[in-house]
Amino acid sequence: MIYIDTRSEDIAYNLAAELYFATEKLPGEDAFFMWRVTPTLVIGKYQNALEEIDAAYAREHGISVARRLSGGGTVYLDRGGWQFAFVTDSAPGASGSSDSPGSNSCSDGAAIEFSRFVTPIVAALRQIGVNAELTGRNDIAVGGRKICGNAQYRIKNRTVHHGCMLFDTDIDELVRATTPKAYKIESKAVASVRERVVNVKDVLPPERAGMTAEQFRDEIVFRVAHRRYEITPQDRARIEALADERFRAERLLYTLAPKFEMEKVVRTAGGAFHIGLTVKNGKILSCGVSGDFFGAPDAAERIGDALTGADYTPSAVREILSRFDGLLFRADAEELTRGLFE
């Protein structure tokens, strides 16, 4: 097991580094990562961003938002927590031909396996005196309170296993930041599960009291990996390109959720806009607008028509709504866009 230190607190760069070593530069043995980031909300690959995050709260508190490639629910990360990742070959048979009658002609997808990755972390925690245990949901807990959630993605016969370890995370902020606004949304997206949590720092044995976050990382890395790999300038250039392509673009936050229908009322000084949207694959399939706002007589219909077919991203919607700024009374594109996305 090699340890790859990304030396970065940029969520996009770190997620891209894992993808790079899973699909492009295969290190020849299993790889282990352990990194942390500035305050960030990370949603699961097939979650609906609007259902999971309070975008206004995140913006006002300087919290970044990103989408990862693994499944599961939304997590709040800060510099008090550590994200670890294993990048390995998938279990044998993960992409073998099915030999059952009426062959599937697709990879048979070996059963999802967490213990291979979580067990060494539990063992390392126990060695430093943390009474950690694996739970039924493949989380790591101490005394029934979660300290680490886990998720995976499998791509090209490789598995990337993520763990989100609370060491000294701001738990109050975690709770506030992962409580979304109540929207009326009908969707089939993956929903988050909210559980009781605790920081590792608060369950350390007395002889380890005072351990810093960096010391904690070193203790885990020492027990899981046996040598280090230093990222080269060539690696870094390619990882940055992957970060731009797969993790930094605004559209990635909004385009991966399954089809959903949403109704919102955006209240402005010029009146209320009732907006109904159907969104699929990041495109607005249909949009109906009504309300008691003041504007040109056919403004509602024209806004709905203009938004139908548009990309469902704040920048695309803002650009379209800006064409109506002169036709609406005391309501503008920025206000309506924020109302729709926050």
Binding site: G44, K45, Y46, L69, S70, G71, G72, G73, S95, S97, S98, S103, N104, S105, C106, S107, G109, I112, F114, N138, G149, N150, A151, Q152, Y153, R154, I155, K156
Partner: peptide
Amino acid sequence: AAKTVSEIEAD
């Protein structure tokens, strides 16, 4: 499934 996203490929 189980917090894991799997790509399923054509064989």
